[in-house]
Computed example of a mutant assay.
Amino acid sequence: MSGPLVIPSTLAIDSAFGALSVAVASARGTMSRIRADGRAAEDLGPMVRDILAEAGLHGHRPERVAVTLGPGGFTSLRAGLALAKGLAMGWGVPLLGFTTLFALAADARREATENKPIAAAIDAKRGEVFVAIFGPDLGVLVAPLVTPVQDLAVALRARVAIESIQTIAGTGAGMVVEALRPFGLTAQVCAPGEAGLALPLVNLAAKADPAAFPANAVYLRPADARPMAPTQ
């Protein structure tokens, strides 16, 4: 008879956009912290320190680290990814990376009532949207892409039956609903979890194969800022 499933202690960090969140899964259970008005470069480090202490891992390293890879805010993403990479390297533990859209879909799955696709969408500004479609098991049906909202139906219809999408999550959910309703979309919009994206992320990462989730940033388009041209 097998014993209870033991999962590796895991730290998750999300700084993709909006609120900062961190979460830990350990022998004490799962806990998370969120800061709505935080600045990634200054606040993530103290948030990680505090939650590790609360989880009983102060002075002990987690067995793995997970981080959101984007898309999202360029500066905050880089800060979160740099911190996660530094911690994983310093502790000598695996680092797992998940796209922000994947984390949104994982969070939305808690409200799904049928085995149907889940869409995750982020308002990319400029009239564009970052979007991906996942199956009920979170398998990728449409890989993350960025597209003008008016071209969304064309971008998706060849890859997934729009009317089959059950749930939409993320800051771009309303944009997707408006763009796809004429094509048969009747999906419900999933409200974001109050604990932030680190919580669904830590639950996924604690059970995932690190080799399947490399931590490479996913921006989908260049940063808005450009270096200034040298003056003559």
Rank of each mutant, 00 (worst) to 15 (best):
I165R: 01
P136E: 09
F102V: 01
G170Q: 06
I13E: 07
S2T: 07
L101A: 03
L201G: 03
A158I: 02
D151T: 10
E54C: 10
F17A: 14
R221L: 10
R49C: 10
A158R: 11
I118L: 11
R181L: 02
A215C: 10
S21Y: 03
V142Q: 04
V131A: 04
S21K: 04
T231G: 15
F74K: 10
G184W: 12
L11I: 10
F74P: 06
V6K: 15
K125E: 03
M47L: 08
L220T: 09
P200G: 04
I7V: 15
I122M: 10
V189Q: 07
L20C: 05
T100A: 09
N115S: 13
N216I: 08
A108N: 00
V48P: 03
L96F: 05
V6N: 13
G18R: 06
E54H: 03
R35K: 09
R110F: 10
F74S: 12
F134N: 05
G174K: 12
L220H: 08
P62H: 00
P230L: 13
G80Q: 01
A84S: 14
A108V: 00
K207S: 13
V202E: 02
G196P: 05
G38Q: 04
E194C: 09
L145S: 12
A120R: 00
A229R: 15
A215R: 02
V48C: 15
A12G: 10
D137E: 15
I7L: 15
G86P: 10
V160N: 01
L138R: 06
F183Q: 08
R159T: 13
L199G: 01
I133D: 01
A229Y: 13
A27T: 15
L96A: 09
V93C: 03
D14N: 12
V65C: 07
R39E: 04
A119N: 02
I162W: 08
T171H: 09
F213W: 14
T147L: 09
L201W: 04
T171P: 08
L57S: 02
F130I: 01
N216T: 06
F130R: 00
L44Y: 07
G90K: 09
H60L: 14
P222I: 11
L199W: 01
A187C: 14
A106G: 07
P182K: 01
V48E: 08
A161V: 11
L20W: 00
M175F: 15
L44S: 03
V93F: 02
V65P: 01
V202L: 10
A217T: 12
A161L: 12
F74E: 13
A155M: 15
A108Q: 05
A82L: 14
L199A: 09
M47C: 05
M175L: 15
V176P: 02
A112W: 07
D14M: 05
A88L: 13
R157Q: 15
L201Y: 05
Q232H: 14
D43H: 05
G38R: 02
G97H: 07
V140C: 14
V24M: 07
S26K: 06
A187Q: 07
V129D: 02
A225W: 14
A198K: 04
